[in-house]
Simulated scan of single mutants.
Amino acid sequence: MKIGDKVRFLSEVGGGVVAGFQGKNIVLVEDEDGFQIPTSITDVVVIDNDDYNIKHDVQNVSTVKDEDEDYDPADRPVTFTAQPEERKGGDALSVYLGFVPVDIKEITNTKFEVYLINDSNYYIDFTYLTVEGTSWNLRSKGTVEPNTKLFIEEFGREVLNELERVAVQFVAYKKDKGFLLKPAVDAQLRIDTVKFYKLHTFQENDFFEQSALIYTLIENDKPVRPLVVDAKKLKMEMARKASDDNKPRAVVQNARKKSKDEPVVVDLHANELLDTTAGMSAADILNYQLDVFRKTMDSYMGKHGVKIVFIHGKGEGVLRHAVIHELNYRYKNCSYQDASFQEYGYGATQVTIK
């Protein structure tokens, strides 16, 4: 049954022309006077002539209909779904997490919307989680179609503390066709909630008409470095490296020596040794710095006369005191002094291997 068909009422005399539909079950029948009569679709039947005034047995007609099941194809539900269009370059996986202020003009009071942005030709099945202590909580899960973004949730400032650390885990695939297998992604982010109070935090971008804060989860098949450092994994990695051959260049990656007579220079600043210190306590950072110091010293022990300059910074002097303590108790045979101020400024100690 479709618009323009001539129909007859089954339960009474009369009929008209199909003028439209209301939902799936109601048809609008327009009579000769131009009135549209809402009628159940089961109470009308399509006819080939203009004789609307013949009343038929409703029971017999409906019985025949049930047996024949002769429906017009236009009445059947649409089951075909067009495949999403793929774009050139979209087979490299790029996924982002976007935070969008509902009313950026009221940045101190507005709510925020969270979106998962799938800038690739793959389907993404994801979970979106936040952590409380050591326990993770599921906030949302779902599927993002290729080259689209999906609304996840809306939140206010009262829950900002819950979002200081979030994780997005997902797998990528294509439907009804072959594809290159992509590794599952587990991206953990530390969200700086202070940014949600600053207007300049939200920038113009390629995914929203309004300004947004965008975090990269993976881009061009390259996952971002985790913003959360697992201190236990870090210590295990340090222990593993300690068992390797003590070759100076292999152990001391940031040591530099310009010529034979110049000292080896090792910068112990955390930002020189680590890509990020997020998730690490001050004790974790100090232990890592001292581990580099010890490995450097051990790798040059026995090479008499070699000079090593350790740049530890002035700061509060915690690292310097720890280095001096190591020299006094672990490396008693080596002499040390303040390094040249002109070359290294304050905050450097020169050690001579004996």
Rank of each mutant, 00 (worst) to 15 (best):
T277I: 10
S259Y: 08
Y215W: 08
E32M: 07
V168G: 03
E113W: 01
G156S: 11
K195Y: 14
V309L: 11
E106L: 13
E237G: 09
E272S: 10
R87C: 07
V18G: 02
V229H: 01
K111F: 01
Q203L: 14
P263Q: 04
T127E: 03
D43L: 12
L129C: 09
A212M: 08
T39L: 04
I191D: 00
R320C: 01
N328F: 07
A212V: 11
V292Y: 02
G313Y: 06
D57F: 04
Q350I: 14
T63M: 12
Q203P: 10
I107F: 13
L97W: 00
K332W: 01
T352D: 04
N60I: 15
D230S: 14
Q342A: 06
S299G: 02
L97E: 06
Y197R: 09
H325F: 08
E86N: 03
N246C: 11
L213F: 15
V29P: 00
G315Q: 11
F170G: 07
R240E: 01
G178D: 10
Q253V: 15
W136N: 00
T216N: 10
Q36P: 06
P73E: 06
Y71C: 03
G133C: 07
N109G: 13
M238P: 00
G15R: 03
Q289C: 07
E85G: 02
L213P: 04
G345M: 13
D298H: 04
V306Q: 11
S259W: 06
V27P: 05
I191L: 08
F155H: 15
H312R: 03
Q36R: 10
A283N: 15
S340D: 13
K233F: 08
Y344G: 05
L160G: 01
N121T: 06
K177L: 06
N328W: 09
E132N: 09
E132F: 10
Q169H: 10
E237L: 07
I47F: 11
